[in-house]
Design a protein around this nucleic acid. Sequence first.
DNA 1: CGCGCACCTGACAACGTTGTCCAGGCTCTA
DNA 2: TAGAGCCTGGACAACGTTGTCAGGTGCGCG
Lengths: 349, 349
Amino acid sequence: MPETTRRADRANGSRYGNRPTMKDVAARAGVGLKTVSRVVNGEAGVTPDTERRVREAIEALGFRRNDSARVLRKGRTASIGLVLEDLADPFYGPLSRAVEEVARAHGALLINGSSAEDPEREQELALALCARRVDGLVVIPAGDDHRYLEPEIRAGVATVFVDRPAGGIDADVVLSDNFGGARDGVAHLIAHGHRRIGFIGDMPRIHTAAERLRGYRAAMEEAGIPVAEGWMSLGATDPERVRRATEEMLAGPDPVTAVFTGNNRVTVTVIRVLAERDRPVALVGFDDFELADLLQPGVTVVAQDAAALGRTAADRLFQRLDGAPGTPERIELPTRLITRGSGELPPAD
Amino acid sequence: MPETTRRADRANGSRYGNRPTMKDVAARAGVGLKTVSRVVNGEAGVTPDTERRVREAIEALGFRRNDSARVLRKGRTASIGLVLEDLADPFYGPLSRAVEEVARAHGALLINGSSAEDPEREQELALALCARRVDGLVVIPAGDDHRYLEPEIRAGVATVFVDRPAGGIDADVVLSDNFGGARDGVAHLIAHGHRRIGFIGDMPRIHTAAERLRGYRAAMEEAGIPVAEGWMSLGATDPERVRRATEEMLAGPDPVTAVFTGNNRVTVTVIRVLAERDRPVALVGFDDFELADLLQPGVTVVAQDAAALGRTAADRLFQRLDGAPGTPERIELPTRLITRGSGELPPAD
DNA sequence: CGCGCACCTGACAACGTTGTCCAGGCTCTA
DNA sequence: TAGAGCCTGGACAACGTTGTCAGGTGCGCG
């Protein structure tokens, strides 16, 4: 009773609102199903006259190929997944855009989602993307254990990590030189006469935060400056905590004369706090941001190239999809110190 | 000769690297295919013991359901498409994120892409998303003719436009009150004594730009101020053009004493130009931006709520997907004037 | 005039999943 | 103890597309 089954099926869900299929087009054009497929896919071997009839039928019915079915048959989805931390963070905008452009150049679509810095959500998202059978995955890790991706990678999902390395698995990764950048930034402050320099950064479990702290320590050590306990503050980057941390460093008997900030969000909050004070405090921040040059003074930063991170990672991904051999690579992109004034203020002792 | 066919098929593409299927799981667990399906989907009617065996097989094989096939069968993809102008633009970050959050709350994934303000690319993208059979579409229009979406909408793809209205078709749309916001912003300048007020905006074919210009004209007219030809400049928002336009308005025998800027990017460029000058010029900008309060003076803006735009549009989309009846709606969100100093400067005549 | 060949075209199976339906075994009650 | 009813599990078709292969048509050449 196939007819019954069919009716029951239809009743259940609207099934794309009963869109026309190749079968419908074929019937209308008076040709075989496969001929429609050939026309739609621009395959050779169809007479101009037949092709015209098929195209007319397609037009008349408003047919559009169902790529879901196509994917099922072909095994490739021509889409890649991007798991990032927060789409709304200005740092990730250019990164996503760069990934998108590369994907576009390869005829692929981009499916993305934010982990909100929650490892569980990262995993949930990455696996959902794998279930959709994305061809590849670009991941900005939130967690530090990615063994859950092992079966997927073995099954052929190309995977590249960006901004932070993967945990527990061996995979391609594209990073900024967080250690070197932070070291240079802090050295810059030291070169301008500062010795009491504070560091305010993100939670140490985040790789970039740890690396930047390491850079800070290295610069201080190279200059022979012992670091006081109260000069380092790591934790969440919400304005309240950062404000408190900044104020504590600036109070006390031996206040810092300069601050190195571990990322964008921290920098902005610290600027606000410093703007409320009379005594000038030097500042160098990791990450560039818009309008940094228009503030008084301009904000000196260690800039990383978010777009380049995304582009490099996506390029790598498609190389792997095209069968690039070799063991996973770790690609590190340089940072750039941009001096604008705030980092060149002398210590106000 | 099915065996031959099969081998040939495999040879053709790697087919997900030969991932295990439900059939493989069933074989390993010694149960029927459908039983595996039941376990995977948490359906009732499986004994605990059978379920355990199935789960073990799933674990051992690293099986993950192929959602492509599921989609084909079920007719719903649990994904929505977002076509926006530029993912890297700070205005669209929060908007995308808001759409994503709503999608997530409904168990859907987000596929998105940037049109780069190119109508052709917008169409290409939107149709590619439809071919993937996204359940719904959120579009920030680049072009002004969306009749190409008619067959899709008729076929059941819920569609909501944001930020700018659709052209040539009747669909839900969520907008900011561009006219009212601009009018209020200009009126604010007038209230502070300005009469010679410039307007620098985006290309007039963009709806928001046209509306904001209309608001400017309305405010001027209500105040009985005739608008000189040289006070209005519409065009691309690249820094070079905006810089030139600003300088022209500030030169001449009768320079403007205040400027109203039509969007984010324009505002930033104008700030740069004004910063190079001695004579203070009042400024109110459409769109808020980070650090606007930290500049000297703080920048007065007409703020729109990008996240609310995205959230409202996505909510509407899912209402439609859940069968909300009724004719397409036009939802307009209010803007908010935020005074910070630059808009309250008196005219320097 | 007949044969071979190139070229079109369409029938059919398969992709991996889910909905339907039925069989068989079990329990419970009369 | 037989019959009714429930629960579990599996066979089968279908979703819309593409790869394979075979049949059919028309043409050129011997």
